[in-house]
Computed example of a mutant assay.
Amino acid sequence: MSQPRWVPTDDALLASLGDATNAPPVSDRLVEAAKASFAWRTVDRDLELMSLVGDSALAGAAGVRGGAAGELRVLDFHSTVMSLELEVNDGFVMGQLIPMQTGHIELSTPDGLFAETDTDHTGCFRLRRPESGPVRMVCRTDSAELATEWTRL
C-alpha cells in the first residue's frame, strides 16, 4: 500500500490548495451543458420507458436507405400502462395515447425541449418536428409519466 504524500509545511499546503483552486475559467456553454446533464441524472428512474415495438420504415425495407420524401412513417411505442402511436411526415408528428386520455406531450432533442402540447380528450396531438437528429417524447397523464426511447424521426 502506498503512503500518502504529506506537504511538509502549512505554507506549502496553502500554496498547493491555491494552485488547485486557480483553474482557468470554464465557458458558459460548458457550464450550461453540465447543468443540463445533471438535471437528467434521474430521468430513467423518474420516468417509465416506452419501448419502440413497431416502425413502418423498417417493415420490408431491409437494405434500403430510406423511404420516399414525404412518405408517412408510423412508430409504435409500448409500456405496461400506455402506448403511444406516432405518424411522422415532413413537418409534423401526430400521435395518440392509448388508452385514449388527456395528457401533456413534450418532444425533446439533445439540446432540450423542442415542442410541447396538450392532447385532446381522445389522446390525439400534433407537434412540429425537428429537421434531424434523435428525439424523445415524454407523456404525462393523470395516471402515468412515461418517456420514449431516443429515436430518429
Rank of each mutant, 00 (worst) to 15 (best):
E149R: 12
D118Y: 11
E71S: 11
G103N: 07
V64Y: 15
L72V: 15
R136S: 04
V53F: 08
R136L: 12
G95H: 00
S79Q: 04
E48R: 13
W150E: 05
M94Y: 05
R136M: 14
R136W: 09
I98R: 11
W40H: 11
V53K: 10
L49V: 06
T122E: 14
H121Q: 03
T122Y: 12
N89R: 08
V74Q: 13
A36F: 12
S132M: 09
E149T: 08
R45Q: 07
V93M: 13
H121R: 04
A68C: 06
A144Y: 05
G123D: 03
M82P: 00
D46C: 08
T42M: 09
C139K: 05
M50H: 07
A68S: 02
M100R: 15
M94F: 03
A57L: 07
R41I: 10
A147S: 10
S56A: 13
A115I: 02
E71V: 11
M94C: 01
M100A: 13
L49I: 04
R128C: 05
F77W: 08
A147M: 11
P99R: 01
V88I: 14
L72T: 15
L52A: 09
R128A: 09
M137W: 03
G66M: 05
T42L: 11
R73M: 07
E131I: 02
L75M: 09
A59P: 00
E145F: 11
S108V: 06
I105G: 02
I98A: 08
G133H: 03
A39N: 09
L47Y: 15
D111R: 11
F77V: 04
L97V: 09
G67M: 12
V81H: 07
D55M: 02
M94H: 12
G60S: 02
L97C: 07
T42Q: 12
G95R: 00
M82Y: 07
R128F: 07
A147R: 11
F92W: 13
G123W: 04
E116Y: 10
C139D: 07
V43D: 13
A69Q: 08
D142Q: 08
M82F: 00
R140F: 00
E71W: 05
L72G: 02
M94P: 00
A59Q: 11
E71C: 01
A147I: 05
F125W: 13
H121Y: 06
V74N: 03
P134Q: 08
A69I: 13
V64K: 13
L127M: 06
V135I: 15
V74I: 14
W150F: 01
V138F: 12
V74S: 08
R45C: 05
W40R: 10
T141N: 14
C124W: 14
G63K: 04
R126Y: 13
L107F: 00
H104Y: 15
T148N: 11
H121W: 06
V135A: 04
I105W: 01
A144G: 02
F38V: 14
D111I: 05
S83K: 07
D120F: 01
S51G: 09
H78D: 14
E87H: 03
L84S: 09
E48D: 15
P110Q: 01
T102V: 15
G95A: 09
H78E: 15
T141G: 14
L49W: 12
T122L: 14
F92A: 10
E106W: 13
H121S: 09
R140P: 00
A62S: 13
P134E: 10
T102W: 08
L47G: 02
